[in-house]
């Protein structure tokens, strides 16, 4: 570690809490959201410095990109009820509490064991038997595959709940304003590029950083762009869309249940087949994750209702 490395890490580590603080204290919401997106960028750099390349991939895609867009999606609707600061007493109380928590947690963190391999060694020993050569994919889809099974259920439940609260008349896609020339050509480039990148990332996932979540969120980013620009209407709940929504969870549940029928534990893939099965699972998950992430977005930007005055006046 040279001085430059240290400075680089130091600057990154200092920027993160600073920007985070900026997000929660910014005077307006669009500023806060923009800083949040910037925070995502900077954290992706931090993940890269910490050799967490998979996390950096997901952060770049889901963490900042799609989350930022999601937060923005509510902005036009909620904008009028902005800037109601909480009372000074509450802020002071929370501030004092927070200072205490920060110092306490900080001291605790710095006193953690300085060197610990965690489960790294155990993962490396068992990776040959698992369904993937990349340690993180192996943990996600094999060693701790059960976590991921529940996580996919979380995604699906969130998608169903989002559909449930959306007003029916907002569901059919409204085509937005006509797409401008540069935007159209950009989209023409984006769609094929996204598909290629997503396919590449799924393939990489079996032996290198990459995988279903990364690929799915790239595809979703492309889908969301098409939807936001009015190029494509919002997804309707046709049979095909529903099939795509549940495909990942269905394959996962089948893979979890099949070994039970043979008297094994759940998710205990037959070992020679573990690799292909995990790859098939990744493909199914990619499709589902992409579609689910797209359903998180409203069809076209919701405009606040026109003031009720028009209806009230005789």
């Amino acid at each position: 570690m040279s001085l430059v490395d240290w400075t680089l890490d130091g600057v990154l580590a200092a920027l993160l809490p600073l920007i985070a603080w900026g997000v929660v204290t910014a005077a307006s919401l669009d500023k806060a959201i923009m800083l949040f997106i910037v925070l995502g960028f900077v954290s992706a750099l931090a993940w890269a410095r910490l050799d967490a390349i998979d996390v950096a991939l997901v952060e770049a895609a889901v963490g900042s990109g799609l989350t930022g867009a999601l937060l923005l999606s509510a902005l036009p609707a909620i904008q009028p009820r902005l800037r109601r600061p909480s009372s000074l007493a509450r802020r002071a109380g929370v501030g004092a509490l927070l200072a205490g928590i920060t110092i306490w947690l900080g001291v605790t963190t710095l006193r953690l064991p300085a060197r610990s391999g965690g489960l790294a060694e155990l993962v490396c020993e068992n990776i040959e038997q698992s369904g993937a050569l990349h340690p993180i994919t192996a943990v996600l889809l094999d060693f701790r595959g059960y976590d991921t099974l529940i996580e996919v259920a979380v995604l699906l439940v969130a998608s169903l709940a989002v559909r449930a609260v959306q007003r029916p008349r907002l569901r059919p896609g409204r085509r937005g304003e006509p797409t401008s020339e540069p935007l159209a050509s950009f989209l023409n480039l984006l769609v094929p590029a996204s598909i290629v990148i997503a396919g590449f990332l799924v393939w990489e996932g079996s032996h290198a950083p990459g995988g279903a979540f990364q690929a799915g969120s790239i595809l979703a980013g492309c889908g969301v762009s098409l939807q936001l620009t009015g190029e494509r209407p919002a997804l309707r709940m046709t049979l095909r869309v529903r099939a795509a929504l549940v495909l990942g969870l269905a394959v996962f549940v089948a893979l979890a249940g099949a070994p039970l029928l043979r008297g094994h534990d759940l998710l205990d893939y037959p070992r020679p087949w573990a690799g292909p099965l995990v790859f098939a699972l990744e493909l199914a998950l990619t499709v589902s994750i992409a579609v689910i992430l797209v359903t998180f977005f409203p069809g076209a930007p919701d405009r606040p209702e026109p003031p009720a005055r028009a209806a009230d006046s005789p």
């Binding site: 997106i37 990109g65 867009a69 923005l72 999606s73 935007l183 790239i218 980013g221 492309c222 936001l228």
Partner: peptide
């Protein structure tokens, strides 16, 4: 890729 999506949003 995703930075572009953010800008569009």
């Amino acid at each position: 890729v995703l930075a572009a999506v953010t800008v569009i949003a």
